[in-house]
Design a protein around this nucleic acid. Structure first.
Length: 221
DNA sequence: AATGTCATCAACCGCCTGAAG
DNA sequence: GCTTCAGGCGGTTGATGACAT
């Protein structure tokens, strides 16, 4: 049971005069709910999609009897209600893979999530911001470019000998430990290849899901 | 026990993109 | 080529719980 479900507050949306010019609302906001989803709402959405399938999100709320915006329904389904969602803590090889992919792709969370079966872009993004980012900073790695940060402490990185500028030129410090946990080579779509090849430094594309980096574990402790 | 601070994560917002007309 | 619209995306917010003082 999610904590938000206890204190679900259903607010009516008011048209706020926010910054910038307001776009045309994506749906009739006069009567839509916002905030955490209730169990009943979840069930309605699940039931509807089970029968009619995904798609045409704009019309789903009305058809399913939900006072929600279509976008909200889509997000709820894709991030939490889909049957193939894998929830729970990230495995160490998943974490390693996220870091590697982020070094290659940047903040393209949906692309990164696409490489992690059962994980959603929102989940990956949150995990990055709340765990990985912090961990990298702690290690003296700039999470934006995955290189050692001038002003960061470098105690861990320097003692491990893995942060030489040479190794950082490749995917930084993820020298996949000799034995790969599995041989999951990663292939890229055209779009991903374009993104990668447009990034300036030469990158090591030979990604494998490796045993967790010892440096990461060191930082965790 | 009360209060303050931090960490987490579900959900929203606004912008972008591509398809359709 | 243009406009419109739905879907998708990344950034950000805010509620909540955990931990510290």
């Amino acid at each position: 049971m999610h904590p938000h479900e206890h204190t679900q507050q259903v607010q009516k949306v008011e048209f706020t005069t926010k910054k910038k010019t307001m776009r045309k609302p994506c749906c009739d906001k006069e009567s839509i709910n916002k905030g955490a989803w209730s169990k009943q709402e979840d069930q309605k959405l699940i039931d509807y999609i089970r029968v009619h399938g995904e798609g045409c999100w704009r019309s789903i709320p009305k058809a399913a009897g939900l006072h929600r915006c279509g976008k909200s329904c889509r997000l709820r389904w894709l991030n939490y209600l889909r049957p193939d969602i894998k929830r729970g803590i990230f495995a160490e090889d998943e974490e390693d893979l996220i870091i590697k992919l982020h070094a290659l792709l940047g903040n393209r969370w949906s692309l990164i999530a696409g490489r992690l079966p059962g994980r959603t872009d929102n989940e990956v993004k949150n995990y990055w911001n709340s765990h990985i980012r912090r961990k990298l900073i702690k290690m003296g790695i700039d999470p934006n470019n995955h290189k050692p940060h001038q002003s960061f402490p470098r105690s861990h990185a320097s003692t491990e000998g893995a942060s030489t500028s040479e190794s950082m030129n490749k995917v930084p410090f993820f020298k996949s430990s000799g034995v790969a946990a599995s041989d999951h080579r990663i292939s890229f779509t055209k779009e991903e290849t374009a993104i990668i090849s447009s990034s300036s430094p030469p990158l090591n594309l030979d990604l494998t899901i490796a045993l967790p980096s010892p440096m990461l574990r060191a930082a965790e402790e």
